[in-house]
């Protein structure tokens, strides 16, 4: 279990189980079911796009050791590789190839796999489509892990602050305003620098900054819900506090969490691109590809496919998420969210 790839596999399984669970829950609840149908009707294309990214990311997260060494890479046989790694094993060229080219881009030496690179290759001859697909996992990992860190903690602190009030609220509010007073980008940078470079570290850093948003929202909303008549009634009937939180507060927060999650997601992925430029991004992200491609664009003739591919992959994902995010907000809740921000 000490191997990272085993954890990665477990996470995939957990996600699939979780997805089935969520789907069932939605089916049971008439409101959610209607909302999701509405969403599908409104934004089918964007949803399909997001689903595609998800599938690629999940497929790339399943890894195992074994299989033959390919393309003269003797170390690979001892490393955990995903189906995507295996699919592209041995597609290595020596250097740049333009999309579908038959010969090398500079110098025109014959390629080992002519015409087999729909998006071309990078300077070390790695297939650009391969790098692009690998990037999907990184992007979703950033958004996903970050939210996984931020949302539960935010709920814990936000709800207890809003529900209990008093000293607890003061403490949570103090932490929130402290974190919020630091410029977000600087805070992320400071966290990554202190924690060290790496995927998890970047996610934690981004998680801390987005925690503030989630926390502020759930605190404010809990305040309001606490004063609602049905909560007051439940209390008067002697329902326990814990039960109130779980039966009345949390369910009523869920749609806000979904909306905030989707709206935060795109910001997280874009932030990672910025971190990549600063040299503290996540290995293999589209941000790093774009950063690298800056120089390639200046070549004569320019190597344009790396930048274009990574730029479009990033743009399409963010655009789809933004579009879906707006739609979800319209479907689930057109008003409350803004009041708390």
């Amino acid at each position: 279990m000490n191997e990272p790839w085993m954890i990665s596999n477990l996470v995939v399984v957990a996600m699939l189980v979780g997805a089935v669970g969520v789907a069932r829950a939605i089916r049971r609840d008439r409101l959610w079911l209607e909302a999701s149908r509405d969403l599908v009707r409104r934004r089918p294309v964007a949803l399909v796009v997001i689903a595609l990214y998800l599938v690629v990311a999940l497929v790339d997260s399943v890894r195992w050791v074994g299989g033959a060494a390919v393309g003269g890479d003797a170390v690979a046989a001892h490393e955990a590789r995903s189906p995507i790694d295996r699919l592209f094993a041995g597609s290595q060229e020596k250097s740049y190839s333009a999309p579908f080219a038959k010969v090398e881009f500079y110098g025109g030496a014959p390629l080992e796999h002519p015409g087999k690179h729909p998006l071309g290759t990078d300077v070390l001859g790695r297939d650009c489509l391969y790098l692009l697909l690998k990037g999907a996992r990184v992007a979703l990992l950033i958004g996903g892990v970050t939210s996984l860190i931020a949302i539960p903690l935010a709920l814990l602190f936000g709800v207890s602050a809003g529900f209990v009030g008093g000293k607890v609220d003061d403490a949570v509010f103090f932490v929130m305003s402290t974190l919020a007073s630091m410029p977000a980008l600087l805070l992320v940078i400071a966290l990554v620098m202190a924690l060290g470079r790496g995927t998890l570290q970047v996610c934690i850093a981004l998680g801390v900054t987005s925690w503030v948003n989630f926390c502020r929202m759930s605190r404010g909303e809990t305040f309001k819900l606490r004063e609602m008549e049905y909560v007051q009634a439940a209390r008067a009937l002697g329902v326990s506090e814990v039960r109130i939180v779980f039966r009345h507060i949390l369910p009523n927060l869920s749609h806000l969490i979904v909306i905030t999650f989707v709206l935060t997601f795109s910001g997280l992925v874009l932030s990672e691109a910025v971190l990549s430029f600063l040299g503290i991004g996540v290995q293999g992200s589209w941000g790093q590809m774009i950063d690298r491609a800056r120089d390639e664009l200046a070549r004569e003739p320019a190597v344009w496919w790396n930048l274009t591919a990574a730029g479009i992959a990033l743009l399409v994902l963010i655009l789809a998420v933004n579009v879906v995010g707006d739609a979800i907000r319209d479907v689930l809740d057109p008003r409350t969210l803004r009041e708390n921000q």
Binding site: S266, V274, L297, L314, L315, I318
Partner: peptide, 17 residues
């Protein structure tokens, strides 16, 4: 929404070019 979805890196690279 499109303008928001473009990474600032792309803006910078594009403008310099």
């Amino acid at each position: 929404v499109v303008a928001m979805s473009v990474s600032i890196l792309l803006y910078i690279v594009g403008a310099q070019f």
